[in-house]
């Protein structure tokens, strides 16, 4: 049977296009799925005016909620909300923790609201199972209840079982929140505080199905 050049070209095109059509990225309009966080931790570190003194702290009580959907633009995370109770941040020294809560996280009215990050939507164009992608996560981070713009780059990898592993770094300036740099016996912390976030999350398929894709 003779096959015309046009037919061959058509077949090649179809073979080439087929994976694109069936790839997750092209399934626009997929229902959103909830993301359930399995573990998450946030660390911070900041320098001081004394060369060998820095302050580091950690909390493993980060709570994160988000939804995700695959779309034409890749993976899209929606309605991201992350909170961190300030009382769970620990530097390894109780007295220093008390100072931190008092001087950094206590609002003028005496409350210590949780740290809160919110973002309506984040697009991760290159994120697909088995491949790591860097996503810029932008939103607002509230400290002392004062929201300010905040963004960080998260490296996210999704395995074939629907588990996401993400880690990223960002920085905030205390002055942006009207917070004075804490000082103790001549040791004064820097204005910039570096943040690091780590989490493992899983697509919450059952919940999504039960709730019609809306967590």
């Amino acid at each position: 049977m003779r096959v015309s050049a046009a037919a061959t070209l058509t077949r090649l095109l179809l073979l080439g296009i087929a994976p694109v059509i069936t790839s997750p990225l092209s399934r626009a309009g997929e229902p959103a799925e909830a993301i359930a966080v399995e573990s998450a931790s946030a660390t911070f570190s900041t320098g001081t005016n004394v060369p060998a003194v820095s302050v580091k702290g950690k909390s493993s009580a980060v709570q994160l909620r988000a939804r995700m959907r695959r779309g034409g633009q890749g993976t899209i995370f929606e309605s991201i909300e992350a909170t961190l109770p300030v009382k769970t941040l620990a530097t390894g020294m109780n007295v220093r923790d008390e100072h931190m809560r008092k001087y950094v996280f206590t609002s003028p009215d005496g409350r210590q609201p949780d740290l809160r990050f919110e973002s309506s939507q984040v697009a991760c164009p290159g994120l697909e199972p088995g491949r790591e992608a860097a996503c810029t996560v932008s939103g607002t981070l509230a400290i002392r209840g004062v929201p300010r713009s905040f963004s960080m780059v998260l490296k996210i990898k999704e395995d074939s079982g629907g588990t996401f592993r993400a880690a990223g770094d960002g920085a905030v300036k205390l002055s942006d929140y009207g917070i004075e740099q804490p000082s103790q016996f001549g040791v004064k912390t820097a204005n910039e505080v570096r943040l690091h976030l780590d989490f493992v999350a899983r697509r919450h398929l059952a919940a999504s199905a039960a709730e019609g894709g809306r967590p």
Partner: peptide
């Protein structure tokens, strides 16, 4: 263990030991 790599942060003498500074 808490990220103090040398003695100069807390001791008056950078060699360590002995009197403490205010911090």
């Amino acid at each position: 263990r808490l990220g103090y790599p040398n003695c100069a942060s807390c001791h008056i003498a950078p060699q360590g030991g002995g009197l403490l500074n205010a911090y």
